[in-house]
Computed example of a mutant assay.
Amino acid sequence: MATDNLTSTPTLMQNQTAEPALILSLNNVEVIYDHVSLAIKGVSIDVPQGAMVALLGANGAGKSTTLKSISGLLRPERGLVTRGEVQFLGQNIDALAPQERVKLGIVHVLEGRRVFEHMTPDENLVAASAVRGTRQDMLRNKDMVYSYFPRLHQRRTAQSGYLSGGEQQMLAIGRALMTQPKLLMLDEPSLGLAPFLVAEIFDIVRRINNEEGLSVLLVEQNAIAALEVVSHGYMIENGRVVMHDSAEAMKKNPDIQEFYLGGTEGRSFHDIKHYSRRKRWLT
Rank of each mutant, 00 (worst) to 15 (best):
Y234L: 13
S8A: 14
L38K: 14
R114T: 08
T7C: 12
A199E: 15
A158F: 12
G57V: 00
I201D: 05
Q87C: 14
L74S: 09
V43L: 06
Y275I: 09
A95G: 03
G213F: 08
R277H: 15
Y162W: 07
A194V: 03
G166C: 10
L110T: 11
V241F: 00
T11F: 13
I208R: 05
L6G: 00
K68V: 07
L177D: 03
D245F: 07
E77H: 14
L217E: 01
D203L: 10
T9R: 13
Q49S: 03
E77K: 12
A58I: 07
R206W: 05
Q180E: 15
N210H: 13
N28Y: 06
D4N: 13
H270V: 14
F202D: 10
T157C: 04
A97P: 03
K182A: 07
A130E: 13
V229D: 06
L152W: 01
D122S: 11
A172I: 08
S129N: 00
K103R: 14
W281G: 00
L191W: 09
S37L: 13
G112Q: 09
N59C: 09
Y33L: 03
E117H: 04
P121C: 03
E100D: 15
F116L: 09
G161A: 01
V205C: 09
R207M: 10
L186P: 01
I23D: 06
T11G: 15
A225D: 02
G166M: 10
W281C: 05
G213D: 01
K63M: 07
K68F: 04
P195G: 12
L177S: 09
V43Q: 03
E188V: 09
G174D: 04
L80R: 08
D187W: 09
K273L: 15
N5A: 10
F202A: 14
P195E: 11
H35E: 14
M138I: 02
R83N: 12
A95F: 04
R156W: 03
I93V: 15
I70C: 02
P48V: 10
E211V: 07
M1P: 05
G174E: 04
K251W: 02
